[in-house]
């Protein structure tokens, strides 16, 4: 994707709000360390997760 979300691991606390807001399955993955990662090749870049995140841990990278 040309446009995809990325995570600032320092800000992420694993609250899952981003996961719940993503219309695509298994794109945002929660790891045992309570940090999420994004499968950039499948992210459609809608930005819903960016708005959902209360800690501004996500941003759209273009």
């Amino acid at each position: 994707m040309y446009v995809a979300a990325k995570v600032d691991e320092n800000k992420c606390n694993g609250c899952k709000l981003c996961i719940w807001s993503c219309p695509d399955p298994n794109v945002i993955i929660l790891h045992p360390n309570k940090k999420v990662s994004i499968n950039q090749s499948r992210c459609k870049g809608c930005g819903l997760c960016v708005i959902a995140c209360k800690r501004e841990a996500l941003s759209i990278d273009s």
Binding site: C22, P23, D24, P25, R42, K44, G47
Partner: peptide, 13 residues
């Protein structure tokens, strides 16, 4: 699995 619905689709979510 990966699907073809639009970015930000409320229906897909």
């Amino acid at each position: 699995e990966e699907h073809p619905l639009c970015a930000g689709c409320g229906l897909a979510l």
